[in-house]
Structure formats: C-alpha cells, structure tokens
Design a protein around this nucleic acid. Sequence first.
RNA 1: GCGGGAGUGGCGGAAUGGUAGACGCUCCGGACUUAGGAUCCGGUGGGGAUUUCCCCGUGAGGGUUCAAGUCCCUCCUCCCGCACCA
Length: 864
Amino acid sequence: MSEYNFSQIEKKWQEVWEKEGVYHSDPDPKRPKYYVLEMFPYPSGRIHMGHVRNYTLGDIIARVKRMKGYNVLHPMGWDAFGLPAENAALKHGVHPADWTFSNIAYMKAQLKKLGFSYDWRREITTCTPDYYRFEQKFFIEMYERGLAYRKKTLVNWCPKDQTVLANEQVEDGRCWRCGTEVTTKEMEGWFLKITAYAEELLQDLDKLEGKWPEKVITMQRNWIGKSVGAEIKFFVPDLEEDLIVYTTRPDTLFGATFVALSPEHEMAKKLAEKKGLKAKLEEFIEKVRKERRAIEEGRAEKEGLFLETFAVNPLTKEHIPIFAANFVLMEYGTGAIMCVPAHDQRDFEFAKKYGLPIRVVITPKDKVLKAEELESAYEDPGILINSNEFSGLWSEEAKERIIAKLEELSLGKKKVTYRLRDWGVSRQRYWGCPIPIVYCERCGIVPERIENLPVVLPLNVQIDKTGKSPLPYLEDFVNTTCPRCGGRARRETDTFDTFVESSWYFLRFASPDPELPFRKEDIEYYLPVDQYIGGIEHAILHLLYARFFTKVLRDLGYINFDEPFEKLLTQGMVIKETYRCPVHGWIYPEEVSSDGKCLKDGCGEKVEVGKPEKMSKSKCNVVDPDEMIKKYGADTVRLFIAFAAPPEKDLEWSDHGIEGAFRFLKRLYSLISSYADELREVELKEEELKELSDKLLKLRRKLHQTIKKVHIDFEERLHFNTGIAAIMEFLNHLQDTLKELSPDDLKDHKAKILLKEVFIKTLLLLSPVCPHICEELWEKLGGEGRIVNAKFPTFDPTLLKEETFVLVVQVNGRVRDQVEVPADITKEKALELALSLPKVKKFVEGKSIKNVVFVPQKLINIVV
RNA sequence: GCGGGAGUGGCGGAAUGGUAGACGCUCCGGACUUAGGAUCCGGUGGGGAUUUCCCCGUGAGGGUUCAAGUCCCUCCUCCCGCACCA
C-alpha cells in the first residue's frame, strides 16, 4: 500500500493545472457566469491564516460552481499602495516599490502552494501605472461633475513629525510613531462627494437584504445615519441675522431655553468679536481641540461659554441665551442646536451645570412631569403641553404641524440630515496614486488632460528619516505646465487614500484591457460579483466606498448596474489560545512545559492559559501557513480550515484538530489506493446497479443521501463544516460496510461497479475542498479527464427513500423504544405495534390512552 | 446609552417544532508492535441501578404545544459595532 505523499502529489497537480490553464475564464455568452471574489490582500510580506481561511472559502465556492457548470471568474491581485511600504523603507532602507514587489512575489508563491483556482492572467497590482491611470481618469471625470472638490478640514497633526495622521495612526491621542501628543490642524484636501449618494446608498441596502449579513447592512445604515428633522431660524438681534439650528425634535421647540453653537461656528466668532470675548473663545476652542478625543469618547464634562447675548425663539418670541458648547459638533447639521433640557439628556446636564431654566413641554400619558422634579430628561414621545395651539397633540403629529407653521412663516423648514461625511481622499504620503491635479498661477486648479495620463509616481526617490513624503521636494515632479494655458504650474503632491484603489478593482479583474479601464461587454457579462468574501473589518469603509464608486461609474456611463456585490460572506477571525507567564508575559507554546511551567530562561513560573485570541505576533499565538503546508500539505490545511467552524464564526486553530484532518486524508488515500488497481478498468454503468443486496443498496442509498447533503451545504448554505462532516460520516459507513462484506461479495461485478461509483463520487464531493488528493486518486481510479473539470455528482431522488425507518415510540413525549417498520406504515398499524412493545406496555398499562400523535417517517407519541 | 450576535459535553461544533450532542478533537481501555506521539478496534454529557433499567440535562425562570435547544414573555452573562450626530 502506498503512502500519502502529499508534497509530491500537490506539486505534480499544481504544475499540470497551470500548464493546462484549467482555471482560465473568458466571456462566453452561451454559458452562465459566476464571479467569485475574495478581498485582495495588502502585500505585507507573507500571508497569514486569515488569508488562508478567506481564500480557502472562496476557492471552495469557485470550484463547486465550476463543477456545477458555471463559467467561473476567480481572480486575485494586490492592494499594493500603502503606508507599511514607506515604513519598511524607513526601517530597512529598501525602496517601497522593491519591498512591495518582492512581497508580492513571495505571497504569490504561497497562494500557488495552496492550490487556489485563480486565473492568474488577470492579476492586478494597484501600484502600477497600468492600473492607477484609470483611477486618475475617474477622478478627473468626477471633478468635472462636481463630485470631487477641495476644502479645508480639521485633520490629526503630529507637530514633531510635521505630518498628517489618519485616525487609526492616533493611539490614545498620541502619534503612533513618536508618541507626541497629536493636535488638530486645518488643512486643504480633496474630497469625494459620497454624501450626494447618501440616500441611494441607504435605499439600496434594502436590495441586499437576505444576501448580505444583517450585521453589515445595519452597520452601514447606522454609518449613513439618516435623520429627519428641521432647520429652524433663531433671530439674533445683536447681529441682526438668523442663527439656523438643526433639530430632530421640532415638537419640543416651546421648551427650548437656550441655544448652543459649536465653538468653531462662524457666528460664535462674530459674537465673540463683538462682545470682546475673542481671547476667551480662542482659549475655549484650543481647550476643546485638545480634549477632542476625550469628548468623542464621552469622558469630558459638558462645558460652555456664554456669548453674552440672546436669540429669539421663532414661535414664543422669547429671548434665550446663546452659548458656545464643547458638545456641539461643527460637522453635523448646521453646527448649532436649540437646547431643550427637559427632553434631551445632554441639554439637561448642561442646563443643570449652568443653572439654566428647564421647561417641560412633553409629558407621558399617565402622569404630569414637573421640571423641578426631573432627575433626567424625558426623551420619549408624549403629549405636548405649554405649547400654545399645539398643546394636546401627540409629539409625532406636533413635529409635522410645527414644521408646517415654521414653513408658513419662513422661519424654518423640514430637513433631512446624514451622519455620513464626504470622503477625504488626500494623503500626504508618497506611496500612493498621484492625484492628477495641477495648480496654475493663472488658471488655479486644473485637472490633468486625460491624454496625459497617467501622472506617474516617480520612483527615483529617497525616503528620509522624517518619514515625510518626498514628492513636494521633487522639482521634476512638482514643476509642470498648466494643461489649459501652458503657463507655469505646480503639481498636486498628495496621493489618494488607498481605499480608492480597492473601490473599483473588481471591475478591472473582469476586463484587463490595456487601453480602457474595462470593456463594456466584459463587464456586462461578468458583473456584478456574485459572491464576495472577506473580513467583517471592512463592513463599513471598503464596502461603502465600493458601492459608492459603482454608482458613480454608473452615472458616468461606464456600467449599468447599481450594486457591485450580489452576495456577501463575512468570515470570522482565526484565533488561537495564548500562554502568559507572570514574569515573561506572552510566550510561545514551545516555551511551556508539559506540566504548564514557563521554560523561558529556566523561569519555572506557572503559565496561565489565556482564552483564544486573534493571532498576533505580540501574543505569540501565530501559526505560520508555510509550516503547516510543509508538515501536512495544502489539502489538509484547507480541509481543517473548512471543517473546524462555519465560515462566519471565529475559527479556533487547533494543533490536534489539524492532525484529525490529516488522518482523514491518509485514511481516504490508503482505502482508495488499495482498491484502485482492481477498479481502474471497471466501467461505471449505473444502469447495472439494480437488485443490489441489502448491504450494497444501503451503501448506495447512503451515498446519494450524502450527495444531497453536500450539495445543499456547499452550494446553498455555505456551511462547509457540516458538508465535510457528512463526507466523513459516509467514509466511516463505507469502511464498516466493507468490513462486513466477504471477499466473495466483492468479486461480484455489480459490487465492483458500485464501489467504483462510491469512490468516484466521494472524490468529486471532496474535490472542491481538497483538490490535489482527489485529482491523484481520480487518476488512480481511472477517472475520465481531470477531476477539476468534472461535473458535481447528482443524486437519484428515487434512491433516497428508505423502505423502512426507525419509528421512535414515545409515551407522553418521552422516548420509550424504537422499532424498525415499513416506510408506509399506517397510524393504526404503528399504534398496534407500539402497544405490543414491552417497554411501552410498562408505561401504558392501566392507563387510558387520551391521544395518539403519529408523524410519518418519524415517530408515534402515545398520550396517556 | 443605541444597534447586532451568541450562550448546547472536557474542547471545536451538529440538530425543517419530532430520538439533543452528527462529525472531529481530547481522554480512557484494548489489539498489533522491540517501540509508539503510527495504525486498527471499543468506550467517552451527568447521576443512580450495574447486561439490555431509570432519572436529570441545551445560561436562569415562566408560558404555548401531544412534543421546545428551536416559538412567546421576563431576566442574567459574554462578544462585536456605533456612540454628546441634536
């Protein structure tokens, strides 16, 4: 019997498949397509188990669909721009491009070793001009349509490094690189007007219902954050102008006892100027900026600065004080709010602190609220009081009526607001796609001409110790001529946020044309992506940006669909248990003795076994895919990963678990190998599989039941763990059956045909998960062609039906016995039989039968 | 605080309202062996009776039902996301 030599088998078939180009896909209008896409990786150096899981899940889906007759597009590429390349350059003195491309080469080899069914001809590397030139084109077209614009905003700024920091580069209010306290700074930058699509992005989430995880849909809804309210004008006599506030509770207008502005609000500045509070306000702004983080986390106390003037409530005509307050956000609504302490907790706290009046205008049905007795704001709906002609109305109706009244008086209007902000795409980074804009001394902002694209990112640069982008200092790059007037001009030196590249790569995969971003007919054939797979961490940003780009490209006339990803699967993390020594902190499993002591430096302290956590170097719980492939082979790694948990749950890596998967494949290999010679020439004529002996019929039935189960689990439920369990169960049953049969039984021709069917179909079922071993055994068994090109087995429905079943006999809902009975047994017969069973008699005797429930094919329940 | 998800053996996890614990791991026993961390066979939720029997058991409590892990109500715990968004 031959050994399962996985490394030889895997190498052999990977070469064959590559040579034969079995995974290539080209548009073919005669065949149905299926586009399977996994989120492409950032080329950080090596792939990790999270990637292995993501790509294994995608590969299984792609292979199942191929076997079901679809023309499957399954591509892979590299999200190759990004900050880590610059950090590597800083640390190791290697150029970001060299670092990136060598990482890509290494990781590509790793993916190939895992046997993924990618059409590598379609590989994309986003840091090449071939790719990003089209991104620049889209940007210019967006600019021309007013969808890209330049504005000043507040950014995180590290005063030491003199650089802008992304939110995720700020750790506890400090710069991640140098630890300096981060401040905010106003800076100019480019923005994409995603807010113009807020309503459509929200509405179209309904189309994804049932196809995307509910969680992701909810997260996006919250992120877009639609709220319906009103803008209301409060006249400010001191300035003789209106202050416009935004509120979702116009019904509480009569309870407004003050108004609050964001400290950065224009009117706050004007009023401060007028009242001689300029210094105080600036001090306040500075303080609020510093506390920004604490404020965002809700840790800072509410604080305000009275601007020594008043605003007029448009309906009551009351004069109420104006404050600048730290809890009012400039970026949301109008940056100004009316404050109703009785019905808003934040206003309540502020009012208590500054001794401002609290007036109840909404009251629940059953009791009367008194302002002086309130311990917190009453925020629920209720009935209006103290509100003139609106008193007595239910708050929901009052909202409409008060808005109507304000509109009639031109003092306010209904207003929809979104939490979603425009997408800031400027990065003061080197390793990114250049923003194709020129600043002309005469013409101002001018987009580069389309025919001059790409604006190539210069590679002849030195990354210096400050980590600052070298682009602004590259005279050759910066100095240019104006595309419009030909005069002197300077290039934009910011680059795009890397989320821009990943917002359209799925389109490029379908049509890698050298001259066009993509050909329309290719897009029409392959898109949208049928199944997208990736981590939940991209639930909001990437997926929202990609949805936005899809809609923009649609409106620019490139494509004709609304949503890029038909179905979405978000896989869980790969986690592993951790070990912690009281002296050494996190330690590797190898550093723990068999009796749980720390072996590091002869330490000997008792090691704490921590709960499983996401794999990370710092926690010493990383498992290297290369090592696993070397030890067990790609098929075993894939099998374990698909088997250990359903895709959406976290997967706990287990060294014992992978041994189990390895054992299963060894068992499969030796079993089929031992019959291979005998069965190779046997022709699989299913029509001869009639009048089988009981045991063989049972085996065949079990096979077809397994095919059905695997079909459902692999193609519909995407629960590969239970599908694989069914295959394992079948193999167990097969081995039991083989043990029971005599050598003579197996010499029978029919038995041989059946065995051939059983083996061939088992291999077909397992091949999406473990393609190499299945291809090898397929060849040994004399299978036709390549298993990777074979059809998924179908089941014979007539075979599924059992002639008998095990009837569960219950008395008062408790199982008392079970007995094998004909499948078509009647209720009467079943009852008669049940009552004759001694174990049942025991519980029924001497009692009267009140009811009998009979479930065909299942059970009988006798109620006494 | 708001939103989402989950609580099932020693562990990962199975169960269209119909035998709870499939499949795998671990552990225990046995076989083969110079050896076993290879392989094969058997057992493995808890408690009691000890051969084939009974009771208990899906986070807690209640309800609907002939029948509940599954449906309904109340509560507890954990995880994730968002969070002064007016």
